[in-house]
Design a protein around this nucleic acid. Structure first.
Lengths: 126, 126
DNA sequence: TATATTAATGCAACTAAGTTGCAAATATAC
DNA sequence: GTATATTTGCAACTTAGTTGCATTAATATA
């Protein structure tokens, strides 16, 4: 899994994430590259980059998929379990560099967690 | 908003939630009542019950919508911000009666949070 | 550098969750 | 019992995401 060739599509997608160090929704990416990359290809490129630990994905409100650059993730160890913050005004999502504490759950085996905090972002607070 | 008449559809849906004190996915409900309630109606009944603070909704993995009974929610005050636990084996979701601590975020206005913990549930741990 | 090999792409058609408009049915209030 | 407003069913639609397959483009090898 995850044999990533440096194709044009891959470069374009990576450039987008490097330009703004933020989460980008798949919908946004598909729209943004609509004249350069096929929709299907966008989905597959993101898939591969996630497999390789370059990006990580999560769901925003309305179940829309978002991707953001990984920091300290490797192909087999996605330890990057941080919360995301989605602004209820502008809809943008940031990764938060905060550790969240998952409560101790007896008789259960916790594998991971997805935390989406909602509210007003820094820009929209003014 | 939220004028709920005690119709047959509403009763059927509420009975389902009373029978098993668990979260149920919309897909499950639509399927379960496919010969009794129209798909559109199921969606609308759930919508209304959420508006009235009887149920609350959240997203499971794959962005599928789930509903669960509210405890202590009212029409205007949805304080029921508890984490949900989805089993990676059987797919079922439980509401956890645990409070989660949202980290302090300077310059941001936190309105709420969605926490989905994933792992093996009690039944699947054996 | 040319060629073989394998991964990646585009396209079109599809699936599935959820929504909308509207006419008909059914609760509730009077 | 009748009027009024809510709720329902239906069919058609929207949108995110997927699949199969033939073509194209990277990489490895000679």
């Amino acid at each position: 899994m995850g044999v990533v060739r440096k194709t044009q599509s891959v470069s374009l997608v990576l450039d987008a994430f490097n330009a703004e160090n933020k989460a980008i929704s798949v919908i946004d990416l598909v729209e943004r590259f609509s004249d350069k990359i096929n929709k299907t290809t966008v989905y597959r490129v993101l898939d591969r980059l996630e497999d390789d630990g370059v990006l990580h994905s999560f769901l925003g409100v309305n179940g829309i998929k978002w991707y953001a650059p990984c920091k300290g993730c490797s192909e087999h160890k996605h330890t990057d379990v941080h919360p995301h913050f989605q602004c209820t005004d502008c809809g943008k999502i940031d990764c938060l560099n905060v550790d969240i504490t998952i409560p101790n759950l007896p008789n259960r085996e916790v594998a991971g967690a997805q935390v989406l905090i909602q509210g007003k972002c820094e820009a929209c607070c003014n």
